[in-house]
């Protein structure tokens, strides 16, 4: 009897009661397993889309940068500078250039007035060693 109950119990666990569960779990596993490639594919698609978008953004910025660089080059061209000098700043070519020869040596580097000279960093105080202090005490 006990043996029959055990068998019944066993069949209750492994038999009719558990078979749908097993099938359900198996179906879920299969379903999840089937979803995995889809998720991966979706992730890859999203990433690829992001990459393409970023590449496009990079190309856009690169193209704009190069266009700006060319504009800068054109604005700095001799013709643009000349046009600006003549038409906006009303500059004219001098009729005569005169050089004044100054019979004196060129100014030396230290001729800058002290108040205009660049500030120099104060040097860090260096403390003598104890030995130096003792030697310094010797008359």
């Amino acid at each position: 009897m006990a043996s029959d109950r055990e068998l019944e119990g066993a069949s209750g666990i492994l038999g009719f009661a558990t078979l749908p569960l097993i099938l359900l779990v198996a179906a879920m596993i299969v379903g999840v397993a089937a979803l995995l490639p889809l998720v991966q594919s979706s992730g890859a698609t999203t990433t690829a889309g992001d990459i393409t978008s970023l590449q496009q953004e990079r190309d856009d910025m690169q193209a704009k940068l190069e266009e700006e660089q060319l504009k800068v080059a054109q604005l700095g061209s001799l013709s643009a500078v000349r046009n600006l000098a003549i038409n906006k700043l009303h500059m004219v070519t001098p009729d005569d250039i005169r050089y004044i020869h100054v019979d004196a040596p060129p100014p030396s580097a230290d001729s800058i007035p002290p108040q205009l000279a660049p500030e120099t960093q104060p040097q860090a105080q260096t403390s003598n060693s104890l030995l130096d202090d003792i030697i310094g005490l010797i008359p």
Partner: peptide, 9 residues
């Protein structure tokens, strides 16, 4: 360094 000839897309 002033460009005399450059390429544009």
């Amino acid at each position: 360094g002033y460009p005399l000839a450059a390429s544009q897309d």
